[in-house]
């Protein structure tokens, strides 16, 4: 495990970059919380968010080149989407299924990200099915000799699927420029890791596919960033894939329809709250004199304002015309180039 104490500095990041990293994490937290609140208010029928996993998400995404590298996320990756360039407005428009929602105009569920201009690929709710897509995208980059890396994200649950195994194997054979990011939060909804696998570490499985697996403290954003940078270098140098296991915890239930009290103790959740990645990073920032408490409070205030505005905008935005549900089953003629 790599942890913050092993990091000599800030991985070469500037003060502005470090604060931007903090801002993305805090923004992801705020958007997740807002989506759950809108759900409780009866405005959004469903919420799936990733509070607690922000360091894993933002740390990796910060190492990617928005619009150049490909993102194949899963439904908890609010921090990834925001770091790559989506806005709270984008995500709340999806949450409230508005016509303007870039991910699908209200067709797909919230947090099922898609944004073609940012190369965030449309996500389904099937666990693990996106992983072969990432491998295929990376294969295309290699065939076309393009300087592109594909990062795909998934939870520990996905590592039980055939698609995960088949994709890791395929990527290893062809030394594809792809980064597999497991956000190890220890539960596939309610099923704990010990009932999902007989091994301790997801990362150890990479050996069977012929490329490195790295386990990292997924609540330490700088540690995550550092291993993601290394994975990026490997991918760009033609050395092939890396599996990153970012060990973290989901501080909230699986979705708005889940009651996590049925399968995990409050004590366990409280223990992980002490390791909250946002609190840890803000402490690190203050400790190293990157910014003081009032600076961070100002960032938080701006985020609250931005999320309020996005929320208000999304609430008044129209839903698509019902009959538009018949469109886009097939590529329509005018779309063919």
């Amino acid at each position: 495990m790599v942890s913050v104490k092993d990091i000599p500095g800030a991985s070469g990041l500037t003060k502005e970059q470090l604060l931007a990293m903090y801002q993305k994490m805090a923004l992801a937290r705020a958007v997740g919380e807002r989506e759950r609140m809108l759900n409780r208010l009866g405005k959004g029928p469903f919420a799936v968010t990733g509070e607690g996993q922000e360091a894993a998400q933002v740390g990796v995404a910060f190492a990617l080149r928005p619009g150049q590298d490909w993102i194949v996320p899963y439904y908890r990756d609010i921090g990834v989407a925001l770091t790559i360039g989506q806005t709270p407005r984008d995500l709340l428009l999806a949450h409230l299924f508005r016509a303007e929602d870039i991910s699908g105009g209200g067709r797909n569920m919230p947090s099922h990200f898609s944004d073609p201009k940012l190369r965030i690929v449309s996500t389904s709710a099937c666990v693990g099915t996106q992983i072969p897509h990432a491998v295929g995208i990376a294969l295309a980059s290699k065939l076309r000799k393009l300087d592109e890396v594909t990062a795909t994200f998934f939870g520990d649950g996905a590592t039980s699927t055939g698609d995960w195994h088949e994709s890791m194997n395929f990527a290893g054979i062809h030394k594809l420029p792809v980064i597999f990011v497991c956000e190890q939060n220890w539960y596939a909804i309610s099923v704990p890791w010990r009932k999902q696998a007989a091994v301790e570490s997801v990362a150890s499985r990479a050996e069977g596919y012929g490329f490195p697996g790295v386990s990292v403290d997924g609540n330490d954003v700088l540690a995550v960033y550092r291993v993601a940078k290394q994975a990026m270098s490997r991918a760009r140098d033609g050395e092939g894939p890396t599996l990153i296991e970012a060990v973290t915890y989901r501080l909230v239930p699986h979705t708005s329809d889940d009651d996590d009290r049925r399968y995990r103790s409050r004590e366990e959740v409280e223990e992980w709250k002490k390791k909250d990645p946002l609190i840890r990073f803000s402490a690190w920032i203050e400790e190293h004199g990157i910014a003081d408490h009032s600076d961070l409070e100002r960032i938080q205030e701006k985020i609250a304002q931005e999320v309020d505005e996005a929320s208000e905008y999304a609430e008044q935005a129209p839903v698509a015309e019902p009959e538009s549900a018949l469109r886009h089953v097939y590529v329509e003629e005018e779309e063919v180039v």
Partner: peptide, 28 residues
């Protein structure tokens, strides 16, 4: 071998990777 590509015996990955490649400028 890059354009006539032997794959592992894994149909889901063959189709899934082909989907991915089709999103990135290849016609599989």
């Amino acid at each position: 071998p890059e354009r006539c590509m032997d794959t592992p015996l894994a149909e889901s990955c063959i189709v899934g990777a082909a989907i991915g490649a089709s999103l990135n400028g290849i016609l599989p």
